[in-house]
Design a protein around this nucleic acid. Structure first.
Length: 98
DNA sequence: ACATTGATTGTTGCC
DNA sequence: GGCAACAATCAATGT
């Protein structure tokens, strides 16, 4: 199977950090989805800990149809666009051929 | 060229 | 302020 089995995130190694300005990245569809659902989920599950909310949030996310993810993906795309701008500026700076 | 991985993003809730 | 599952992502790197 491709990739390694799910595990910790960003363990303890860093890829040498090659980017000088490190144009971070855009957010992901989940970020926007959580932004909207977090209220709804918590509303239907009042007083629950993040453990439940987080999981439910994820289940709800997949529970959506591609069409429902569209607005969230659109947000992610819009955010990516923003990141692209940084990336370009980063490229421009990297080049820096005045 | 293809595959892989690493780095990042944001939510909540508590210390 | 940071960490914990949850999911996406995607760009740069490696082979």
């Amino acid at each position: 199977m491709p990739k390694a089995a799910a595990g910790k995130r960003k363990e303890v190694k860093k890829r040498g950090k090659k980017d000088p300005n490190a144009p971070k990245r855009g957010l992901s569809a989940y970020m926007f989805f959580a932004n909207e659902q977090r209220e709804n989920v918590r509303e239907e599950n009042p007083g629950i800990s993040f453990g439940q909310v987080g999981k439910i949030l994820g289940e709800r996310w997949k529970a959506l149809n591609d069409k429902q993810r569209t607005p969230y993906e659109a947000k992610a795309a819009a955010d990516k666009k923003r990141y692209e701008d940084e990336k370009q500026a980063y490229n421009a700076e990297a080049d820096e051929s005045s």
